[in-house]
Design a binder for these strands. Structure first.
Lengths: 248, 248
DNA sequence: CAGAGGTGTTGACACAAATCAAACGCTTAG
DNA sequence: CTAAGCGTTTGATTTGTGTCAACACCTCTG
């Protein structure tokens, strides 16, 4: 894991030109109502596509910030490391979501982005994005919304970490995944976890044993069935009850 | 507290025109190197100043989003409420910091912003900001940095909530306040807390009793002296040790 | 096909923080 | 000046989650 030569080597064969105009994730990445001309400008803004293999870093904390990344396919995690070795998974990202906005503030990335499965991303050089944003109002506004959405998401995680108990956190996590898979046309009830129990635990502020126990409990109660990373939600309403109900 | 008539009534007397060009917080709110002409444009972009009295809301979750706010003076908290009554303080903001970016994504605010002392803010209508951002590149980039900084800050809070123990959280909190007061020309070692133990606890994911006990312990150890809301840091290095050291 | 290593589950126990409870001390209002 | 009320401190106890440990399972490699 630590032995990867270095970061990501862009494979020339895979350095295909992206084409937002053709992309089925268009509605996730781009605003509505762009003219043909504007979409073409966006096509030109987006640099290359790049494949990132499982366990490879898309970027690392400390690296110079030059671009943000749109996930075309695959699954990522982002995490922050403390000097003393502790780390915190700050998010899991899937197709259509944007990575790298943490880097804008300090001209360097502040977290690591790691592919949890073989993935494909579009490189969006940031100077290009800013230039085009100055020309296309809808694009500008859309980008602001994307950043704002990230802030709102982070607030949700704070709520989760600050006020919820272990089972509530896991229920919230599963419901969130379910909802995001649904939005991408996958089953709301059945999916594969791309991350380990340890990574889930880090994200939720729990130890992996606690995550495992909560999964087992959910299974015992008939809310879900778990086999390794394969999850089937049997009772969404039941999971939701865990969330709203538990006022202490 | 719940009886305030409604939100914030702009007092016409206080609806003074802001003047960024004259503002001593200029370097916090604005990019370097704007031309005179550009600063004047920014002056025009910023709407009015508004006074918010202690315990008044600057905005509430659900209200339409129309502007972001720069704090001229004073102190705020932001918090998110869950249906079941739980709430999470998501941040404390002081002079020169920006409030309201959570509202961009959904056209409505997603959290509440409450003044913790009598405060003064500059209203920045968002359409104006976007318009001017399209004209002044430095302003655009600066705003992107501000949003990104908020994301990075949120990651820090996640780290805190996800991996730290009670005393580490409080130490991190005090050091962060100290550093921000310092940046504003106040004493790094002596300050007044504007928030209650309960609010600190909510922010740090702890109960108020735990916060109180941690304060007492810090005092016993000679790191700080506490008298109600008056804090004096006696041993910054000691507090820092609490952070780096505690790898479990 | 076997073995190794990474990953996940489960149990026993320890411990940090929550909870419950009482009292104290500021601050505010009459 | 006094009383009321909120915020804070401190103590006793409970409890949820962490820790440590053993084992089972799955996957990949040779």
């Amino acid at each position: 894991m630590a032995k990867q030569i270095h970061s990501v080597i862009p494979l020339t064969l895979n350095a295909l030109k992206a084409a937002c105009s053709q992309c089925n994730l268009r509605e996730l990445c781009l605003p509505y109502g762009l003219s043909e001309q504007e979409v073409e400008a966006v096509d030109n803004m987006v640099g290359v596509r790049r494949r990132i293999k499982r366990q490879q870093h898309l970027y690392r904390a400390g690296e110079a910030f030059e671009a943000i990344y749109a996930i075309r396919s695959g699954f990522f995690k982002t995490d922050v490391l403390l000097e003393d070795g502790r780390d915190q998974v700050t998010g899991f990202q899937m197709a259509g979501e944007i990575l790298g906005m943490d880097g804008i503030s300090g001209e360097a990335h502040t977290c690591n982005a790691v592919a949890l499965e073989d993935s494909e991303i579009c490189v969006i050089p940031f100077v290009h994005l800013e230039r085009l944003s100055r020309e296309i109002q809808a694009l500008q506004h859309h980008f602001h919304k994307v950043m704002s959405r990230e802030i709102v998401r982070d607030h949700g995680v704070m709520m989760l970490l600050g006020t919820m108990r272990a089972e509530e956190r896991l229920a919230a996590f599963l419901l969130n995944l379910s909802q995001r898979f649904t939005a991408r046309g996958y089953s709301p009830a059945e999916f594969h976890l791309r991350m380990t129990r340890d990574e889930i635990g880090s994200y939720l502020g729990l130890k992996l044993e606690t995550v495992s126990r909560a999964f087992s409990r959910f299974q015992d109660e008939g809310f879900i069935s778990v086999q390794q990373k394969h999850i089937r939600i049997l009772n969404i309403a039941g999971l939701k009850t865990l969330l709203t109900h538990q006022a202490s």
